[in-house]
């Protein structure tokens, strides 16, 4: 399943959506209700797995139910879940790139949750970058070795933020951010913070706005 096939099959990528991709590469967009919404509601941040599924099942919001359906597909082994957090940041579109994080499985299939943030959603290039990172051909450069949180940190590094600003934005400890930054640099095989950021731009992992 390539990037373009996913894009072509998307009902409305600009507004976000959830695609369930089965082990044969067939794509089903499961969240037309969510896609028609504003994609801005705050959803719970809980550990991945059955707890997350139950958390969504308890929410009456049809968007949450759509996510729960997608999660069920993952837990049943027909898909691999792709998102850890559902952060919607009205102030910055940068977090969009990292809000959709990759947890790639053993080829059983994939659920791709695509959620633009900010006014007007993310640009076409942003979405293309996300899709390429998550479900498309290998992009090289080690991005696939980063955890979702590390990708989020890389996105904020690429926006020029220092570690304290990243800690404030993500509401995590400064020392934790330092660890993430070190890990990002190491995993990307970069020699410096800026080299890691430059790779992110060069490879389209972040938008060069």
């Amino acid at each position: 399943m390539g990037v373009h096939e996913i894009e072509r099959s998307a009902p409305d990528l600009q507004r976000g959506g959830i695609a369930v991709i089965d082990r044969h590469g067939n794509v089903t967009w499961t969240d037309e209700v969510w896609a028609s919404g504003d994609g801005q509601a705050y959803l719970p941040r809980v550990p991945i797995g059955t707890n997350l599924l139950h958390a969504y099942r308890r929410l009456p919001d049809p968007r949450a139910q759509a996510i729960a359906n997608a999660l069920s597909a993952v837990l049943e082994g027909t898909a691999t879940y792709f998102e850890i957090e559902h952060r919607a940041d009205r102030e910055s579109q940068d977090s969009f790139l990292t809000a959709v994080a990759a947890l790639r499985g053993n080829g059983a299939g994939a659920v791709l949750i695509h959620r633009p943030v900010g006014v007007g959603g993310a640009s076409y290039r942003d979405r293309q970058s996300d899709l390429r990172t998550l479900g498309g051909p290998p992009v090289g450069g080690g991005i696939d070795r980063l955890t979702p949180r590390e990708r989020e940190v890389l996105g904020l590094m690429s926006a020029g933020l220092d570690n304290r600003a990243i800690a404030l934005k993500l509401r995590i400890e400064y020392t934790t951010v330092r660890g993430h930054v070190r890990s990002v640099i190491e995993k990307l095989g970069a020699r410096s913070r800026l080299e890691a950021v430059a790779r992110a731009y060069r490879n389209g992992w972040v938008a060069n706005r």
Binding site: V139, G140, G141, G142, A159, G160, G189, A190, R191, L194, E195, V197, A198, R199, Y201, R202, N203, G204, N208, R209
Partner: peptide, 23 residues
């Protein structure tokens, strides 16, 4: 300004080693 400097200068420094770049 810092943001412009980052986008236009820093990420394009010629000496950065960028294997795997897609151009």
């Amino acid at each position: 300004p810092a943001e412009r400097y980052l986008r236009e200068r820093l990420v394009n420094l010629s000496w950065l080693n960028l294997p795997g770049a897609e151009g």
